[in-house]
Amino acid sequence: MKVNDFDRYILSYLDGDLSSSEAEDFEKIMEDNPECKEKFINHQNIAKELSNIENLHAPEGFSNRLYTKIDEISPGFIDRNRLNKKIDSLHSNPNKSMENSFFQYNYMSIIRIAAGLAIVVFSVSIFFNSNNMSNSDSNRSLSATGRINGSDMADNSEDPKLDSNNVDIPLEYENSPEGSFKQVKHKE
């Protein structure tokens, strides 16, 4: 550290930001240079006086006057009758307030997700219902005639259950839990 750098290091020394070796160099410069020492002491004194300056308080009624102006901009935003209750509730349960804020903030996102899920569920239910209905129709025709209703099942030749050898045996098809048709044989 050089004498010419002394001014740059005054603040850092006062703030305690110098390393121990830098602080030693700084103090050495002060010992060897009375002008630097005087400069440091003067600086230290003014800093001390500035830190002791009394802080002022906002004039009485400041908040009320402010809220009156806010009423002109946004009437009713600040309900002074509820004011203390609101602050008290924030004091007593700030986490709940933050949770409420979370749900409020994400309200639309939640609505959108719920709407999307409802559409999916509705679509799936329609799909399964339509399959059930077509299966019921096929079931009625088979029970009645023992034959496959061609309009319901255009090509049954590859269906192993629909063996032409069995067409004379009354058959009923029911949906299995797996969603496929299984043959239920009746006693003759």
Partner: peptide, 24 residues
């Protein structure tokens, strides 16, 4: 953040926290 979400109490608390310092 609460104030941005419409919480009046949060704004009032900010005013209480800073009115003296800001005035000073």
């Amino acid at each position: 953040k609460l104030f941005q979400d419409g919480n009046e109490g949060a704004y009032v608390q900010l005013v209480n926290n800073y009115k003296d310092r800001l005035y000073n």
